[in-house]
Simulated scan of single mutants.
Amino acid sequence: MFEYLPPLNEHNLPYPDTIHPIVVHFVIAMVLFAFVCDLIGYFGKNSRLFEVSWWNLFFATISIFIAILFGQIEAGLAEPYNAAVRELNWHTTLGWSLSAILSGVTAWRYILRSKDPTTVPIPYLGVSVLLMLLVCVQVYWGDKLVWVYGLHSLPVVEAMREGVL
């Protein structure tokens, strides 16, 4: 069965480079931009920004599941060494949790938008702050996996293949 799968390249991937970070940065940007639009819309009394925020949340919610799909594939192909396993597990757990939390926040936002598209309540903004904090923690762990542990980088993949790690 494995002979039908494409061969892995020097990054230990069946495609040219990692896709997970590309999609994840799209999600991060949309979630952060939605939050900024909500804040500016709330304090600047500009209700048009609430519509921008809604659509950013909507597409971020769809995109996070694509990011998780590629993240799971790439994490499995990374063959993480012992030092990286703990952070990779935390990153994976928080990623799945963020997908549920973001889906819940987006559903709540849809209900709020259906009732009154010209305002957002303070409790919603408070939950959005917590969402931003979780996103920042997730970004920290993802950066650590790439820049400290070097998952899918050439030297680490070579070391894994040679049995050094």
Rank of each mutant, 00 (worst) to 15 (best):
A60Y: 12
I68D: 04
R86Q: 14
F59Y: 14
S63P: 07
G76F: 13
P80K: 15
E74D: 03
L69N: 04
R109L: 07
P80D: 11
L77D: 03
F59A: 00
A83S: 11
A84I: 09
N89L: 06
V105M: 15
R86A: 03
I68L: 04
V85A: 07
A84F: 13
F59V: 01
T106H: 06
W90S: 05
I64E: 10
T106W: 05
L98F: 07
I62R: 03
F59D: 02
I111Y: 14
E74Y: 02
F65R: 03
L102T: 05
L112P: 03
T106I: 05
A67Q: 01
L94N: 04
Y110I: 10
E74M: 01
R109P: 04
L77C: 02
S103V: 11
N82Q: 15
N89T: 05
F65G: 02
A78F: 01
S99F: 08
Y81E: 11
A67F: 06
A100M: 15
W108M: 08
L102Y: 12
F59L: 02
A83P: 07
F70R: 06
I62V: 15
G71R: 00
G76T: 07
G76H: 06
G76V: 09
T61L: 05
N89E: 14
H91S: 03
Y81C: 12
A67G: 03
T106S: 08
L98C: 03
T106C: 06
N82L: 11
W108P: 10
E87I: 08
W108K: 13
I68R: 05
G76Q: 07
A107F: 14
A107Q: 10
F65V: 04
L88Y: 13
L112G: 07
T93V: 11
N89M: 12
V105A: 14
G76A: 09
Y110N: 10
Q72R: 15
Y81D: 13
I64L: 05
L88T: 06
T106G: 08
I62L: 12
T93Y: 10
I64F: 09
A100Q: 14
A75V: 05
E87Q: 14
A83W: 12
W108V: 06
N89C: 00
